[in-house]
């Protein structure tokens, strides 16, 4: 290869890129809806395909995590985004705080989604819920040892608890719910208690907590419900072993209930395809999509009466913490500071 040739090629490519850029920006025609998604595309693809099949509306997705909010803010009224899909109540709350959402008034959504799982003014709508449960060793944990989150901090659990990072979204959310219920001081003491009981430095993801229990590193850990389902249906036999080493406990059934988190959708303020976007959110709250959520992601549908995944069904009903999630989300920055103050991750 001679260099001047490759330089010439580069020149042509530059023009091509700019041309493509111009083309891409004009591709926003009617009959579309644009998603910025915190959720991995392959997990929502079945629902979106079904939506397109039924409505003829094409769905475009950008999957990203960090910076989506800043991107929408920076793009301003010209943002192509119509809907943001999130997997955590905290993100929904941040979007509200950033004032980049618009309210939706939809009888369909109000009928399908319990009030607890949607924003009072219709700024966001929960689509699925997942419970923050306790994985406990089948062999080494007696039924009465763990009945609540508070038990994780109890002296009899010393050296028996595993956790992923305290800064992880779901743990922050749980801690924020404890702040909401019992106040900052109690939450700090609880967190310090859990830390004192840790068998190892916080690490890994939810699945690796199950693995650690199987390995005998610890006896209990916090995790989200759907990971249990995903591990059991994983093609890798190893993961089944991990899952089979643990049983699940829904904490605080006798009192406030188990903390739940939401995946949800919100309509962006300047949405160009507003009608299509509302149609999509409504579709996601209806039976077809809710059933798909339940099947593919092993989550709890928010709509009452939708069939659960058989595994989830087998766990039986549980009492979910009824506190308004918008309230919980407000305490997330404080929860993050508590994690630092306690030195949970250090």
């Amino acid at each position: 290869m001679t260099l001047h040739k490759s330089l010439r090629t580069a020149g042509i490519l530059v023009s091509a890129v700019i041309g493509a850029a111009a083309f891409a920006s004009q591709a926003m025609a009617a009959g579309e809806v644009n998603l910025y998604s915190f959720r991995q595309p392959f997990l929502i693809e079945p629902m979106l395909k079904e939506f397109t099949r039924q409505s003829g509306i094409a769905v475009n997705v950008v999957y990203a995590e960090n910076g989506v909010l800043e991107r929408i803010k920076a793009e301003g009224p010209n943002s192509p985004a119509d809907i943001v899909l999130t997997v955590d109540i905290g993100r929904l709350h941040d979007l509200v705080e950033a004032e980049i959402l618009q309210p939706v008034k939809s009888p369909v959504l109000e009928a399908n989604i319990p009030a607890q799982y949607r924003h009072p003014d219709g700024l966001w709508f929960g689509l699925t819920s997942r419970a923050r449960i306790v994985f406990a060793s089948k062999d080494r944990v007696r039924a009465d040892e763990i009945r609540s989150y508070e038990d994780l901090a109890a002296p009899h659990m010393k050296g028996r608890v595993c956790s992923r990072s305290g800064k992880q979204d779901y743990n922050i959310s749980l801690l924020a719910s404890i702040v909401a219920h019992k106040g900052e001081q109690a939450a700090r003491e609880w967190l310090a208690g859990v830390k004192a009981n840790l068998a190892q430095k916080p690490q890994g993801n939810d699945r690796s907590q199950a693995k650690a229990i199987m390995e005998g590193v610890c006896d209990v850990a916090l995790a989200n419900t759907y990971y249990m389902g995903q591990m059991l249906s994983d093609k890798n036999p190893e993961q089944k072993d991990w899952a089979q080493a643990v049983r699940i406990i829904f904490p605080n059934q006798d009192e406030r209930g188990t903390h739940v988190n939401l995946s949800g959708a919100a309509l962006v303020r300047g949405a160009k395809n507003r009608d299509n976007a509302i149609k999509l959110i409504e579709f996601l709250s209806e039976d077809v999509a809710q059933k798909l959520y339940a099947e593919t992601n092993v989550e709890y549908p928010v709509k009452a009466g939708v069939a659960l995944h058989p595994l989830v069904e087998s766990w039986g009903p549980f009492k979910a913490d009824a506190i308004e999630l918008a309230q919980v989300a407000k305490f997330r920055p404080l929860a993050a500071r508590l994690v630092d103050q306690v030195g949970f991750d250090l």
């Binding site: 850029a21 920006s25 192509p80």
Partner: peptide, 15 residues
């Protein structure tokens, strides 16, 4: 007329 966002969210932005 409004050309919208010409560069944001394009391959150009990535490059």
């Amino acid at each position: 007329f409004s050309p919208g966002l010409l560069l944001s969210g394009t391959v150009f932005a990535m490059v």
